[in-house]
Design a protein around this nucleic acid. Sequence first.
RNA 1: GGGUCGGUAGCUCAGUCGGUAGAGCAUCGGACUGAAAAUCCGAGUGUCGGCAGUUCAAUUCUGCCCUGACCCA
Length: 319
Amino acid sequence: MKSNDCSNENKAPKIPLIVICSPTATGKTQLALDLAETAGGEILNADSLQVYRYMDIGTAKPGLDERNRVPHHLIDVVDPDEDYNAALYAQQARSIIDDLNRKKKPVFVVGGTGLYIRALLSGIIETPPVDENLRNYYRSLRDRRGREYLYGLLQHRDPQAALRINPNDSVRVIRALEVLDQSGESIVTLQLKHAFSDCPYEALKIGLSVERNVLKERIAARTAKMLEAGLIDEVQSLLARGYGENLKPLQSLGYKQVIDFLRGRCNREEAVHQINRDTWHYSKRQMTWFSADKTIDWFAPDQQETIKNRLKEFLSPKI
RNA sequence: GGGUCGGUAGCUCAGUCGGUAGAGCAUCGGACUGAAAAUCCGAGUGUCGGCAGUUCAAUUCUGCCCUGACCCA
């Protein structure tokens, strides 16, 4: 039912791509840097928050030295108050890949945002761009009359979509209503038609798996390092630039909790605890997402040599 | 030494007018097609502080003990 129809039926030659995807704090950045450097490739970010400017520490964005070692793409491409999403990402990423492929540069897609990677590799339904007014209208409808009301609306207008969406999941309920309003078609129709079959790439997917309690420790160490590196100052300067705390990217891991701390809604210790806990929850969601993808090859972080051989084997016939 | 209120799931606590219990959080599993570091769904868990008494039946009532907080000496 996952119908990832990316088999090789059509004969158009596929562009090779290396994808490094795994939960946070498993060592993707370092691995990508090593591999890309030796292969003479470039890195294409697949992290939904590293695209934002001024959000460096909390997103564990590669630093300047790392970006000097290997060229990086789709980092720092929008301001925190600009819209960004999976479709936009896929579109931009594909054009960068075309470019690099023309120059015969191996591309290393690196990041933990499963949806972005899927949208890049297999496409995403085509709909008109998100209409913020429309979205806000449905949001306020939800706030005023409740999720049940909104879901009732969907049941009435698009029963097919209502069947596939949980009544409480108002994010998806709203999206379905938007699509219906904007395109006149049910989101389900578009999804069934699309079926993730827009696959111009042949990807080698590499995942790094770290034992759970080790990962928990790495997450805690990472949080501590971020605070030491000045996460609180970074958040303060974002707020000072006039970016409101309700902006989507500021609702993310690390940022949200530091804002709570700065606003006096919790103390520092609680904020740290919540960052660690929420990051752990996030990494578990990532594990659920990535382990459903049976085409990922999993390695332990210390299997550098094995990974390099696998990569060599993947690249050799193509370049 | 006396008194008051507590001791129930890993944590915070609710509850049983006597028929062996439940929420939130944590934990575990899952979903995910233009918000995805978002959003949502599902599932455990217990010698109800200990011992004894009353009772067909006690976590619930009684007694003693242990233990925590506070108050009075």
